[in-house]
């Protein structure tokens, strides 16, 4: 398992965690993506966004769906807490493409890995100026499984 320096934590509630896994499974083997928004670090809404690339190795959020989500987030004065996508065949760690294209330094990049379909893994990262740091992901206050690989 590839690791990065742990820097802080990211809290998810069980319902959101399960929804992310369900979304990732819903279009397997293609990657899915979406946004989590909220306030004070608490997730208030999950926005699944269509992957315009519909690829097994790449995602690109559908621009219009992303705009509608963003406008709602901004109009409600919420924060964009997390940007998530799935890896269907690799571990839950940012790929070089993920790092290269990461521009939302304030958001946590969550990756849902279905590398082991029976044991989904969600890990969270900050990606700022090409540097990856990991957020300790907790679900209802308990450590989320990080998988064996």
């Amino acid at each position: 398992m590839t690791r990065a320096r742990i820097d802080g934590r990211f809290d998810l509630d069980r319902t959101t965690y399960d929804a992310l896994v369900e979304h990732a499974r819903s279009d397997f083997p293609f990657e899915v993506c979406g946004l989590l928004a909220g306030a004070d670090g608490r997730v208030l809404k999950h926005f699944p966004i269509p992957n315009a690339a519909r690829s097994m190795t790449y995602y690109s959020m559908d621009p219009k769906s992303m705009l509608y989500a963003w406008n709602e987030i901004d109009d409600k004065d919420w924060d964009l807490l997390a940007i998530y996508h799935s890896h269907t065949h690799t571990e839950a760690f940012p790929s070089s493409t993920d790092v290269q294209l990461a521009v939302y330094a304030d958001a946590v990049y969550l990756i849902v890995s279905l590398q082991d379909p029976a044991q989904p893994v969600i890990r969270g990262f900050g990606i700022t100026d090409g540097v990856i740091t990991e957020r300790h992901v907790a679900v209802d206050g308990q450590d989320a499984p990080v998988g064996s690989r």
Partner: peptide, 10 residues
């Protein structure tokens, strides 16, 4: 006019 950096990756 709205501006939004694209969100993409691998």
């Amino acid at each position: 006019v709205s501006i939004l950096p694209a969100v993409a990756g691998g």
